[in-house]
Design a protein around this nucleic acid. Structure first.
Lengths: 213, 213
DNA sequence: CGCTTTATCTTTCCACCGTCAAGTTATATT
DNA sequence: AATATAACTTGACGGTGGAAAGATAAAGCG
């Protein structure tokens, strides 16, 4: 077997792409960032990848199937962003929770189109096993952060699960409103000050000691 | 002048519709509720209104112009929903704030597609004067609710404006996550219990007395 | 090595979309 | 009554997603 790794030989052999699936996902990410989800086009992705408009059909049955793959990619990056912040933060439970929230915002601001695809669109198939799994994994980061703050598992404690919902909703709302341009002062604030404000808000929501009453 | 109010005479005179603009907005609302924003179609709206596919051009220069009108309608309903809750609630400032939040959620759950159009899409023209005005008006409800709780105008007090951002983001996040189906337990909870939880969460975020630290 | 099979990609086609241009009809004006 | 204007229809164009059929390269098998 001479040609052990066939694919692209020397130059643009062209007809067989090598790894079109990955190329389409890359292209799709660019397409999404450039045109937003409203302007997302399967043909545009194909053109970016340098193939004909019908080529994607062999790798994604649908335009929405490609968007599902993109959303899946988005959630893995999303989880990475939260973990990256946590790694750079103090191990103290509350600091870890705030770090997850800031990572959440890092991702939303860095990849707005992807974020809106993940949380604001119905085109991806959220019943897809891969997508569902990675979304659950992201959720789990927040749940375990709360668990460490509270000292008990939210899954068995409705009161702690309420904390999860509250802090998730809060951070999510900040992200959405910031992306929508509704929270104008965010752009006006220096990053340091902005992050401090977010910290303070989360702190108010999840008080350090056991919740009263 | 015999035919003082021309429009529709007796039966389906057809050619001149009477008030196609309004009919298109109604049709658009149905289209949006039926197909979601992803499946929204100008031709579909025209068909619902019983006119040809090019008729809307005389009343809306664009498909996005119709969506702008729909978003504007949405914001007026949105403000109404908040005020309706406030009217049925105690006049006590914190109760008024919570009522605004519950009205926010009432609207989001009752008109999910409209809500996502208003906050999760970029198709409406948010620079449009009418849309901008009614959106600002909705924002003002929240600002003044906070003002009454804090006893001072958030516009002049960054600390109070932080409360505005926080409570807005929180309620918005709850709405978005609920619509996305992420907050599963909401559907499982009885309405009474659910509203109580929302009340408690807002209460934690905006404590009754002046914020410590 | 040569033939066949298979997966990949291209070409062609269809239905539908938004938008534009031109034609038709009802209302308003004079 | 004649004309102008506004409302609507018809028809066409480019672009979209998707299906069908043909072309090509790689892989399997004699």
């Amino acid at each position: 077997m001479p040609t052990k790794r066939p694919a692209r030989r020397g130059r643009k052999s062209a007809y067989h792409h090598g790894d079109l699936r990955k190329a389409l996902i890359d292209a799709g990410e660019n397409e999404l960032a450039a045109n937003g989800i409203e302007g997302f086009t399967l043909r545009g992705c194909a053109k970016r990848a340098g193939v004909s408009h019908a080529a994607p059909a062999h790798h994604f049955k649908d335009a929405n199937a490609l968007l599902t793959a993109l959303a899946t990619l988005g959630f893995t990056r999303f989880a990475q962003a939260m973990r990256a912040r946590q790694a750079k933060s103090s191990a103290e439970p509350r600091a870890q929770l705030v770090a997850a929230g800031l990572g959440y915002l890092d991702f939303a601001l860095a990849h707005p189109a992807l974020f809106r695809l993940m949380f604001g669109s119905r085109r991806p198939d959220f019943a897809d096993a891969g997508l569902h799994a990675v979304a659950e994994e992201s959720f789990a980061i927040l749940v375990s952060a709360i668990a460490r703050v509270r000292g008990r598992d939210p899954w068995g404690d409705p009161r702690a699960m309420e904390d999860v919902a509250a802090s998730w909703a809060l951070v999510h709302g900040i992200a959405m409103l910031t992306l929508a341009g509704s929270v104008a002062f965010q752009a006006a604030l220096p990053k340091e000050r902005w992050e401090h404000a977010v910290d303070a808000i989360i702190g108010r929501l999840v008080p350090p000691d056991a919740p009263r009453a």
